[in-house]
Measured scan of single mutants.
Amino acid sequence: MGMPNRKYADGEVVMGRWPGSVLYYEVQVTSYDDASHLYTVKYKDGTELALKESDIRLQS
């Protein structure tokens, strides 16, 4: 078993793309699913969504 190939840690605050949009919002990573390679993130309004790594970026 190798290390999970994840870029962002639980609790890390990053920018997540809103689905169907080009806009990124501040989100907190809450979990990562090794099987689906999706991150569960929480937006400031409390919305929780699963995002692909390509829809997440570090805060500038």
Rank of each mutant, 00 (worst) to 15 (best):
L23Q: 12
Y24T: 02
E53V: 05
L38T: 13
Y25P: 01
M15V: 05
V14N: 01
L49W: 15
G11D: 04
V22K: 14
H37V: 03
E12G: 02
V27N: 00
L23G: 09
A50P: 09
I56Q: 01
K44N: 08
E53Q: 05
M15W: 15
G46E: 05
D55R: 01
S36D: 07
R6Q: 09
V41E: 00
S21K: 08
G20I: 02
L51E: 00
Y39M: 01
Y8Q: 01
L38N: 06
V29I: 14
E53R: 02
S31A: 13
T30K: 13
I56V: 04
S36F: 08
Y32H: 02
A9K: 13
L58W: 08
Y32V: 01
K42G: 03
Q28H: 08
V29D: 00
L51P: 00
V14Q: 01
S31Q: 07
E48D: 06
D33S: 08
R57Y: 12
Y32F: 09
Y8A: 02
R6M: 02
K44S: 10
S36M: 10
Q28A: 07
Y39N: 01
K7I: 10
P4V: 10
H37W: 06
Y43L: 15
T47E: 05
L23K: 12
E48R: 07
G11M: 05
T40S: 08
G46C: 06
Y43S: 10
Y32L: 01
I56C: 02
A35H: 12
D55S: 06
V29K: 00
G16F: 07
G46A: 04
R17C: 04
K7V: 10
K7Q: 09
W18N: 04
W18E: 05
Q28L: 14
M3Y: 13
Y32N: 00
M15C: 14
D55L: 03
Q59D: 11
E53H: 06
P4N: 11
I56R: 00
D33C: 06
K7N: 06
Y24R: 02
E26H: 07
K52Y: 12
N5A: 12
V14A: 05
E26Y: 09
K52V: 08
A50W: 15
Y32G: 00
M1Q: 14
Y43E: 02
Y43H: 10
M15Y: 12
K42H: 07
Q28S: 09
A35D: 12
D10F: 04
M1C: 13
E12T: 10
D34E: 13
D33A: 03
T47Y: 07
E26T: 10
L49K: 08
